[in-house]
């Protein structure tokens, strides 16, 4: 496992733990904040995890299934859009290698 993959795995784990904490303990959108940060640094790679973490959080918090997924995905899209189109940051530098 490369260092990059290891870091990414830890981040995904933290993401799921944060969703758990938010659903059961802290009434504050911690996961959304974390998704925003990850979307800024990791770009489109976050899409897949935004989707699954959304489902996980819906199941934990007894919400309508898919609602948090949609919110997270739209957030990730907006962050990416702002980053590339509005702030003009270089997409190639921020995207993760294949």
């Amino acid at each position: 496992m490369t260092k990059s993959n290891f870091t990414w795995s830890i981040l995904v784990l933290v993401l799921f733990l944060t969703a758990f904490l938010e659903a059961v303990l802290i009434p504050f959108p911690l996961t959304l904040v974390l998704i925003i940060i990850l979307a800024f640094y990791y770009g489109e790679r976050v899409f897949v995890w935004a989707f699954w973490v959304g489902l996980w959080q819906d199941l934990l918090s007894w919400r309508h299934l898919g609602s948090w997924s949609i919110i997270f995905l739209i957030t990730v899209y907006l962050i990416n859009h702002l980053k590339y189109r509005v702030f003009g940051l270089n997409q190639e530098k921020l995207s993760l290698p294949d």
Binding site: F51, L65, G66, I70, L73, V76
Partner: peptide, 13 residues
């Protein structure tokens, strides 16, 4: 990515 996941999330929703 995005469009596919949003579509999937909407279907689930």
């Amino acid at each position: 990515s995005l469009s596919g996941y949003i579509f999937l999330a909407l279907i689930i929703f």
